[in-house]
Amino acid sequence: MDLFPSTSRILRYLRGMNAENVKEWKIELTYRADFIRGMLEPLIFVFPFVLFAMSLMGGRTSSVLEGLTGVSDGITYTIIGYIFMGFLNTAVWGMGFALRKEQWYGTLESIFVAPVPRWVYVLGMALHSTVHQGIILFFQILVVYVLFGVILNVQGVLPVLVFIALMLISLVGLGLMVSGLALIFKEGWIVSEVLYSLITIVTPIAYPLAVLPPLLQKISLTMPTTYAITGIRHFLIDENMGVGLLDSYSRLIIIGVCWIITGLLIFQIVDRKVRREGTLAEY
């Protein structure tokens, strides 16, 4: 077995990822009502966050928040944090459930006999989920602009895209890990739910890091979402970043590499385990 795949194999893997993406779109669009629900739900979920923030601040702005982050508009602060955290959803629910979904369809064994590594399906799902989330993000920004008058700094779009891309590297690692674990723990939603909740708590979505207890602040610094959300808000609404831009990018890359390696490792171990135990198609 060659250590590095040949060009033709790499091309096949890429073709496989794209096919997975296209297949998911086709299946998703056959459930039209659910597709519309999926598009609207994130919009509806943002309202409690906003109303909660408004009730605490007694309006739209907060001098305390401004002192901690450099941004006084708590509504804009919360909304931006929330809508960009949608990418975490793609990792733990979209990618994480890529193989679990195939178990439900009954097609897992059919795809696992194809000559591509099993992570190709997860990356294909990552592609699908990212495009999906991108569309939701666009609508969310449009709606919050109309409803709350949130205005973003358009010039900051390019570095924001870099932050998103770097965050996605880590999230792909997380998706691989969850995807593997979901094959062992047949109730994989518990893994997703726990990881999602933990990461959400230590990420500065609706509150700055400063309000977290010291231990959680330290954990927060190991999360890619912390640097990405802060960086995105910095370029879109001038939040203080705390660390320099290059430092943020470097940390995101290092965390990304670590998470990808961990994700792949766990995925390979689980793949071997379920093939040894014969529990691949069980659900």
Binding site: S8, L11, R12, R15, G16, N18, A19, E20, V22, K23, K26, I27, T30, Y31, Y105, G106, T107, E109, S110, I111, A114, P115, V116
Partner: peptide, 22 residues
């Protein structure tokens, strides 16, 4: 029976697997 994608056509099923086989 459920080794194919029921929500896809016969042709789309084969097209997907054709891509996986390169």
């Amino acid at each position: 029976e459920r080794t194919l994608y029921w929500k896809l056509s016969g042709r789309d099923n084969l097209r997907y697997f054709a891509a996986l086989y390169g």
